[in-house]
Design a protein around this nucleic acid. Sequence first.
DNA 1: TAGATTGTTAATCGATTAACAATC
DNA 2: TAGATTGTTAATCGATTAACAATC
Lengths: 206, 206
Amino acid sequence: MTQKLIPDIVIGRLPVYLRALTRMLSQGRQVTSSQELGERLGISAAQIRKDLSQFGEFGKQGTGYDIEFLTKKIQEILKVNRVWDVAVIGAGDVGHALANYGGFHQRGFRVTQIYDNDPEKIGTDFNNIRVMDIQEMKKSIKKAGIKVAMLTVPAEVAQDTVNDLVEAGIEAILNYAPVNLNVPQNVRVQYIDPAVHLQNMTYYLD
Amino acid sequence: MTQKLIPDIVIGRLPVYLRALTRMLSQGRQVTSSQELGERLGISAAQIRKDLSQFGEFGKQGTGYDIEFLTKKIQEILKVNRVWDVAVIGAGDVGHALANYGGFHQRGFRVTQIYDNDPEKIGTDFNNIRVMDIQEMKKSIKKAGIKVAMLTVPAEVAQDTVNDLVEAGIEAILNYAPVNLNVPQNVRVQYIDPAVHLQNMTYYLD
DNA sequence: TAGATTGTTAATCGATTAACAATC
DNA sequence: TAGATTGTTAATCGATTAACAATC
């Protein structure tokens, strides 16, 4: 029925492979190997080959991988060989940084909507995008058919906002609010919380 | 010799437990169970008990866990029952958002230094912290004994900057630059790249 | 041909879950 | 006491690695 053939953890490594390959390409490189890639990323060569083999045969024995070809293939697999419109919810510092971020458009994303509830912010422009009233969010996201959102609202209102996003048809949420979110099974959430990431490392410090 | 008793993946979940517990505490809750916590976080109750049991016995049969007590214990384990000074490298939008972020100080961190190479920015204040010349970085971080840095410089200079940070004594790096970093074994890196996180989810969209 | 590297299989390793005695 | 929930063991499940035939 549903596929679920490919482990989540494999999908999670593909963007990292893609990033490294794109970088090599921009440095004029044409061919690489699982060994080289693995060394750069701190991953075993066997794992890289195994991961890629889930999706097809992209390399040549004796030679390795054509970087441009493999890049294209991974982009197809991840469905970033197109551009996804993204809504930013919350026009604070983080929302502002995301609206201005230059790294999205080469990587399959474009911020097209920004929402806030602050009258002072509504109507102002962030990187040429008009900040809209969060009251409009549900209707407007639905109308635009947007599937991807980045959530930068305060923790207290995050879950309510997510409920609206889900009703609006959002299926992928990058959550900057420092709370766990409950969503239906068909909706994906990724978490970014700098304090959580830092706390991951302090354990190892003295 | 070296401990390495506790799996990395367990350490990685503790900050998430801590965040949920802190939230419950702020809501006036006093006691919870592995089952309740698991439901909130989408993790099995067994896993939560197993994770915690790595560090001691923090619960009571029949009752569950005292939230305040467990919070304190996890803070101790993660070494965030103190305040870590953090240096922000790069005073762009992301550096700015991090300098202003209010979520750090209750969670064990305080931004005390910001660096940039842009003469226009050097000497200005971000949230009452004077932006310093990146030329001073190595000397000044070493002098202050700072162990934790957040890196928000462009990809092209990230590795060089990291090399300096390592020489300065930094042992934990939260990397916002969209590249993999090579560091010695004693240095930890966590990666935040919104495009990578988004690409993790697009695979599952149509 | 000789050398290199893939894709894949089988073996190993590690993480998660189920189950339950202990006990609050 | 009865009910609930822990901490822990053993079983299951899944991911990583080693090894090598295939082949460029």
